[in-house]
Design a protein around this nucleic acid. Structure first.
Lengths: 125, 125
DNA sequence: CTGTATCCGCCGCGATACTG
DNA sequence: CAGTATCGCGGCGGATACAG
């Protein structure tokens, strides 16, 4: 922290920004949470879909695939008919769940803060 | 958690989603962190701009104004010439800083996890 | 120095319809 | 049931130029 070499780490690939990117896609953390909290880490597509009111099938699948690519979940296909696909939380997924839950927990514990925050105009979703 | 009344809370204005919205605007948490960690909670526009390599003047001001509207920071104008404007962290801002720092901290503590996550295609920024 | 106003590309996300 | 393909809107966010 010596003065002069002020430059803090805000490069594109710094830790903070990389973590933030995981929230870039609207549903990621919610899917992660739901998969864990409501289904013990394993669930089929349709079940997840029903557990997440509001999400479109398209976004659910798309999100799951991205999460698979990130290593947050693993995908398991049953060669049956009709098809059955299971998504499972990976160890990495569980680790990332920590800070996510912490964030949610904070929100639940500070409803008054959220009320204050709600009074702004924007909101992307 | 009794079965039947499954419906979990995923309404538009539930706590989790409202917290997530704060990350919807790219720079919010980074501005918040910088204002606190590098300037003790008080800084002028230009100083902040220089502390955040990569942000455009437009987005910095826009983000700060939204944060002001949310109550995360307060704006103080000095009727001088040339103009000088100070942004200060509010109590609410400091409270929200808790989960934010926690998230960043997790990222710094899990570089290997971030490496694994980095191997995905997307990335909005 | 602080802030605003355009112009504009990019892409997240929803709606809808279709395949196996 | 699981997944893909399109179309279209809204809005973030960068570049640039201008104003007080």
């Amino acid at each position: 922290m010596q003065p002069g070499s002020a430059e803090e780490d805000w490069r594109e690939d710094c830790a903070p920004r990389r973590v933030l990117e995981l929230f870039a896609t609207k549903w990621t953390s919610m899917v992660l949470h739901t998969l864990h909290a409501r289904h013990g880490g394993v669930a089929r597509t349709g079940v997840l879909h029903r557990s997440l009111p509001g999400i479109s099938k398209k976004m659910l699948v798309q999100t799951l695939r991205e999460m698979e690519g990130s290593g947050l979940v693993s995908r398991h296909v049953q060669g049956t008919m009709p098809p059955a696909v299971e998504y499972r939380l990976t160890p990495l997924g569980r680790r990332f769940l920590e800070p996510v839950e912490l964030l949610y927990k904070w929100g639940r514990a500070n409803p008054d803060a959220l009320d204050a925050l709600g009074s702004r105009p924007s909101s992307r979703w």
